[in-house]
């Protein structure tokens, strides 16, 4: 099913249809995640998000000439207990 926003473990990916002009730069880069229908880009199922490297998600965002794609990486979970960076040097 096609969507305008999907979220997964790596973050949230969305397409703004007020800006999208359907030229398909996103489909050229990540055909497994994007399709063009009725002149706009749509996102595939959320499950597909986890198959894509986050670097590629940043690239597809930067490569959209209409600034229609936003990728918000999920902040890393806080570490449970931080250990000294250089143990044994005290």
């Amino acid at each position: 099913m096609s969507k305008r926003q999907i979220s997964g473990e790596s973050g949230v990916l969305s397409v703004d249809h007020t800006l999208c002009s359907g030229t398909g730069h996103c489909v050229d880069r990540l055909p497994q995640l994007f399709t063009i229908e009725h002149g706009r880009a749509w996102l595939a199922d959320a499950a597909a998000l986890s198959t894509v490297d986050t670097q590629h998600l940043h690239e597809v965002e930067a490569g959209c000439p209409w600034f229609a794609i936003t990728y918000q990486p999920r902040p890393p979970a806080p570490a449970e207990e931080s250990s000294p960076a250089t143990p044994g040097l005290e």
Partner: peptide, 13 residues
């Protein structure tokens, strides 16, 4: 520059 223009030139506008 492009960000300033993009809304005015978008398909929807």
């Amino acid at each position: 520059q492009r960000k300033l223009f993009i809304k005015a030139m978008s398909a929807s506008r």
